[in-house]
Design a protein around this nucleic acid. Structure first.
Lengths: 197, 197
DNA sequence: GCGTACTTTCAATAATTATTGAAACTTTGG
DNA sequence: CCAAAGTTTCAATAATTATTGAAAGTACGC
């Protein structure tokens, strides 16, 4: 397979950005090619198109599967494994955020919880825990919000994003006119206590 | 300086997570220590506390400054440079998102725009451009939303986050009862054309 | 200007991470 | 059960990235 200049540029860009995104060049290139391809590709196609070794492609596909970013398909009458990416870019984004959260945020949340349970031995410890508590609370608020938002259907999500900061006007309105029913709004800013498990 | 177990665990955790966040261990440790410290520290303090070389600390601080994550202070009667992190964790988060966007997203947006301007030579190219356009549009929507939200004061932002998906109810209400004044809501979903510069 | 206290640079090296490709393994149709 | 077609593993090696520390650079008070 010979890549057209457009596809090639895209693949190369993803390969280079890979390092900034915490994946390696190979994986970035494989993903990029699958993303723009109009049909599912097998490992040999990828070796061919990208000039990588068989082993690299195998490992790259394994990593992409562990991220849930590619799907394995089977084509009738061909026993090779074919791969493609989900069509829906919003679904892809959800997966990506989900996985990054799992790898980049959750472990820190756990560590913070543990350290906040320990009793401070010094002034410095006490201050450190105050800072950790602030960080913990912020991350909880953000991940909690995300968990909520993530449940919205794509259509509503896009609607919400299109609204942008004009949503703030709704917030002001809410203050003045009525209180939305249902639970936890407001007053969560100074809850240092929830820190400990 | 001898680190307490709590601070040490925090510093070590940040060092290890560093690699997942695209910064190196040294930089992660330096930042962590500055974050929890109750006073500004100078380069020697860091060498001492973290057991790093002078050069590493200098380069680490330089990188953190390039990310706008640490501030340089001067203490009267001492000509050494001291460093600390902003108090406000929300301000820190804004900086972090801003910088990551600049490094991880903006270059891709530029590449996508360029590639969408090229004329497709084949069926495969046409399909590739459709996919790139979808990606481009999604990123634009997300970064546009972020640019908007980012202007909110922290208090409003926290309020918005606390509201979580209950905001969707407001959206439904909006559909039924009134149209918010001011610009661009709705109908931005299928704008493939804006792709070119 | 000079000496001193401090900071930065950068070539050398250490550590880590990516990549290869041949061998081992697996699956499947006959 | 075998041969063929395909996939994965993994030890070796290449490439990249991080770290050091000595030397060069800078700025300040006297």
């Amino acid at each position: 397979m010979n890549l057209s200049p457009i596809v090639q540029a895209f693949v190369l860009h993803f390969g280079e950005m890979g390092s900034r995104w915490g994946i390696n060049r190979t994986v970035g290139q494989i993903y990029a090619l699958l993303f723009v391809s109009n049909r599912a590709l097998n490992a040999d196609d990828l070796v061919d198109a990208l000039g990588l070794s068989r082993g690299s492609v195998s490992m790259g596909l394994k990593e992409l599967q562990s991220w849930n970013l590619v799907r394995m398909r089977h084509i009738p009458g061909d026993r090779r494994e074919y791969f493609d990416t989900p069509e829906d870019v919003w679904a892809i984004m959800r997966t990506l955020v989900e996985e990054r959260k799992k790898r980049e945020i959750d472990p820190t949340l756990t560590t913070l919880r543990d350290l906040l349970m320990a009793s401070p031995q010094t002034e410095a410890d006490a201050h450190a825990q105050t800072r950790m508590a602030a960080m913990h609370e912020q991350i909880e608020l953000l991940t909690g919000w995300y968990a909520d938002i993530q449940k919205l259907e794509t259509e509503r999500l896009v609607q919400l994003l299109s609204l942008g900061s004009r949503i703030a006007r709704v917030l002001e309105m809410k203050d003045k006119l009525f209180v939305l029913p249902g639970g936890k709004q407001g007053g969560k800013q100074n809850g240092k206590k929830e820190a400990a498990s």
